[in-house]
Structure formats: C-alpha cells, structure tokens
Amino acid sequence: MFVLALTYVKPNEEADKHMEPHMAWVREGYAKGWFLASGRKVPRTGGVVLAIGPRAEIEAYVAEDPFTVHGVAKYEITEVAITRTAAGLDVLTN
C-alpha cells in the first residue's frame, strides 16, 4: 500500500483553480482500482490518498496529477507493508 501525501506549495487560491481537473484525476484513480481513500488535510495544506498497485504506475500517475503538472503541490510517496488490518480491510495486505 502507498500513502500519497501531497502538500500545497502554492496558495489555496491557486489550488482551487486546478481543483476540478485534479478531482477528475482522483476519480480516475478510483476507477483504475488504485485509490482506496482520499481527502484533504486539516488544516487545508494539501491532501492524502491511500493507494494500491504497482509502484512505477502509481508514481507515473502522480506525475500526471494537474496539481503536479501546474506546480501546485508536491507529493511524498510512502510505501507501507501492511501486516495486520481490521476485518474487511484485507485488500491492504495484498
């Protein structure tokens, strides 16, 4: 599993200008079966995506995020080797 932590490097107003295409990118990540959960950081300094899939493909997909393309946010990708989950979350250990 991967934790995709994005941090805004431009003001929220700039992020808002690219929010619609970013959210289309997020929806596509879910459609691909890669994204499991996502949301904004509180306070609003960026966001987090929980993802599964091949690392190289996830990294390439992050590079296509409109926030990345337009320099709005930087991503930190952390791989986590899940060894235990709550009932129903076994997809995270694959």
Rank of each mutant, 00 (worst) to 15 (best):
M1Y: 01
L4D: 03
L4G: 04
L6H: 05
T7G: 10
Y8W: 05
Y8F: 15
V9Q: 14
V9P: 11
K10G: 00
K10N: 04
P11F: 04
P11S: 08
P11L: 07
P11I: 06
N12Q: 12
E13R: 02
E13W: 03
E13A: 08
E14I: 12
E14A: 14
E14Y: 10
D16Y: 09
D16K: 13
K17V: 02
H18S: 07
E20I: 10
E20F: 07
E20L: 11
H22A: 08
H22Q: 09
A24F: 05
A24C: 05
W25P: 01
V26T: 07
V26L: 10
R27T: 13
G29A: 06
G29Q: 03
G29L: 06
Y30M: 11
Y30N: 11
K32R: 14
G33S: 08
W34H: 13
F35M: 02
S38W: 04
S38Y: 00
S38Q: 04
S38D: 03
R40N: 03
R40F: 05
R40T: 02
K41C: 13
K41W: 12
K41V: 08
K41F: 10
V42W: 13
V42N: 15
V42K: 15
P43Q: 00
R44C: 08
T45H: 11
T45S: 15
T45I: 13
G47Y: 06
G47A: 06
G47I: 05
V48R: 03
V49T: 04
L50A: 05
A51E: 03
I52F: 02
G53C: 01
G53I: 00
P54K: 15
P54T: 13
R55P: 00
A56V: 12
A56S: 13
A56C: 07
E57Q: 15
I58F: 03
I58N: 04
I58P: 05
A60G: 07
A60S: 05
V62N: 03
A63I: 02
E64T: 10
D65K: 10
F67E: 03
F67A: 00
T68H: 12
T68K: 12
V69C: 08
V69R: 13
V69S: 08
G71F: 04
G71T: 05
G71Q: 00
V72S: 12
V72F: 14
V72W: 13
V72E: 12
Y75F: 08
Y75T: 00
I77V: 14
I77S: 07
T78C: 06
E79Q: 08
A81D: 08
T83W: 01
T83H: 09
T85P: 06
G88W: 15
L89G: 09
D90N: 11
V91I: 15
L92I: 06
L92C: 06
